[in-house]
C-alpha cells in the first residue's frame, strides 16, 4: 500500500533533485524493489509515519533496478536500504550494526523509526555528520 502512495524517484536525476531540493528537511530515501516483501513491509511503515514527520523529513522510494546509478556508489546490494540526506549531505547514524551509512533491515516499530529520523534531523541541524541512534540495533540485543 505504502509503495503506491509514497513518491517514487524514476531516474538518477530525480534522486539528485530530491536530495538537493530540500533545504530544511531530512530526505529519507528507501532504495529497494517494490515487489520485495521486506520493502513492502517497510514501505507500509514509512507511509504511516510520513505524515507525522512531514515537518522535518520527506520520504522517497527508489527502485534500484530502474535506477542502478547509485548501486555501486552507495553499495546498494541489500534488498532494502534506507538512507538519509540533509542539504545534499549524506547523514550517517550509528545503529550499532557496524554500518553507519544506512539502515538495511526492516524496522517495523513506527515510534522507533520516528525517533531515528528525529535524532538524525536534530544532529543534522547542529551540523553533525554522524549521530548515534537512540536504540542499539546490534544483534546481541535481539534476544
Amino acid at each position: 500500500m505504502g509503495s503506491v502512495v509514497l513518491p517514487h524517484l524514476k531516474t538518477g536525476w530525480h534522486v539528485d533533485q530530491a536530495i538537493m531540493s530540500e533545504d530544511d528537511r531530512l530526505v529519507v530515501i528507501r532504495f529497494g524493489r517494490d515487489w520485495d516483501p521486506d520493502c513492502m513491509r517497510q514501505d507500509e511503515i514509512l507511509y504511516r509515519i510520513a505524515d507525522k514527520v512531514k515537518n522535518f523529513a520527506v520520504v522517497y522510494l527508489c527502485d534500484i533496478d530502474e535506477v542502478p546509478d547509485f548501486n555501486k556508489m552507495y553499495e546498494l546490494y541489500d534488498p532494502l536500504t534506507i538512507m538519509f540526506f540533509f542539504r545534499n549531505k549524506h547523514m550517517m547514524c550509528d545503529f550499532g550494526t557496524g554500518n553507519n551509512n544506512k539502515m538495511n533491515w526492516v524496522l517495523e516499530d513506527k515510534q522507533e523509526l520516528i525517533d531515528i529520523i528525529e535524532t538524525i534531523y536534530k544532529g543534522a541541524r547542529k551540523g553533525r555528520g554522524l549521530v548515534v541512534s537512540p536504540k542499539d540495533y546490534s544483534t546481541r540485543y535481539r534476544y
Binding site: 539528485d16 535506477v67 546509478d69 545534499n88
Partner: peptide, 9 residues
C-alpha cells in the same frame, strides 16, 4: 547520476 550533485560514495 550524482555528478551534478557532487555525490561521493
Amino acid at each position: 547520476a550524482g555528478l551534478g550533485r557532487g555525490a561521493t560514495g
